[in-house]
Each structure stands twice: as structure tokens, then as C-alpha cells.
């Protein structure tokens, strides 16, 4: 089954995501790299820390891959998310989607990051000078039917 869905301890490798989705029948590979930002609401952030419910996170990322296959017609999706401490500027998430044409690849890549932020069980903690805070997302879209 195509696709790569991994929670990773340590630095993320963009090349491995691209390799996982590339192939001769695809004319486009769209990638997204989310990086640790040094501020939030005007407050300086020193580093980020991510925590995940690893087996469920990987299962939900695979579910997002299934959504992409049915909505955008391509099964070639890679989603990698880092856990643990992430230094400012370093990637926390990498997504790659390959498709026959650019429009599907770009739209699918955008779908993947929006859904990841909405439903994959991963949490971010911001570390400031001398303190830290868990970030809590908005109420999620309907998760169960």
C-alpha cells in the first residue's frame, strides 16, 4: 500500500518523503514544511515540544491519506511529524503529495496539513524564557459519526 505515515523522534528528512511518493506516472510533487516559529501572539518562543499518541496519530494520518485518495485521486502521500523538542527554524512536519498534475498535488497537500492540524492526536508545548505552555486546538470538526 503506497504512502508513508510516521511519527519521528529526531530530525525530519524531506528527501525520504519525496522518495516515498515519486514515480514515473506523476507530473507533480507538492511539499509542505511546517517549521518552529520564534513567536506566538507577540511572545518570544524559545523552542517547541511535541507529544503524540503515536499509534493513533499514525493511523489518523493514514486515514487522511485515504481521504486524499478518494477526493484528489492520488494514493501517493507522505506525512511525517516530529515529536520531542524542536528548535526554532527546524521542521516539525513534512508533507509530500505526488499526482499526475499540479492542481491535485497542491490541493491535496493543503488538505493534508489542514486535516492534520484538526484531527491528528499530536500536541504542541511552547517553551518561553522560564516558562512553558501547552497549546490547545479549537474544537475539532465532527470526529465521529
Amino acid at each position: 500500500m503506497p504512502g508513508l505515515y510516521r511519527i519521528v523522534e529526531g530530525p525530519l528528512d524531506l528527501e525520504s518523503a519525496i522518495q516515498a511518493v515519486s514515480g514515473p506516472d506523476r507530473g507533480a510533487i507538492a511539499t509542505f514544511i511546517g517549521t518552529a516559529r520564534d513567536h506566538h501572539d507577540g511572545r518570544p518562543v524559545q523552542s517547541l515540544e511535541y507529544h503524540a499518541y503515536v499509534p493513533m496519530a499514525e493511523a489518523v494520518m493514514r486515514q487522511i491519506g485515504g481521504e486524499i485518495a478518494s477526493r484528489f485521486g492520488t494514493p501517493h502521500v507522505a506525512i511525517l511529524h516530529r515529536i520531542g523538542r524542536v528548535a526554532v527554524g527546524d521542521p516539525s512536519v513534512i508533507i509530500a503529495v505526488a499526482a499526475a498534475h499540479r492542481r491535485e498535488a497542491l490541493a491535496a497537500c493543503s488538505h493534508a496539513i489542514e486535516r492534520l492540524k484538526g484531527i491528528v492526536p499530536i500536541w504542541k508545548k511552547e517553551h518561553y524564557a522560564g516558562s512553558a505552555r501547552w497549546i490547545e486546538g479549537p474544537d475539532p470538526p465532527a470526529l465521529t459519526s
Binding site: 499518541y53 512536519v93 484538526g118 484531527i119 491528528v120 486546538g137
Partner: peptide
């Protein structure tokens, strides 16, 4: 069974 706060990955 697991319980957790709203997610904030990305």
C-alpha cells in the same frame, strides 16, 4: 481507551 485535550500538531 484514551482521553486527551483538543489537538495542536503541525
Amino acid at each position: 481507551i484514551a482521553v486527551f485535550p483538543p489537538v495542536s500538531g503541525g
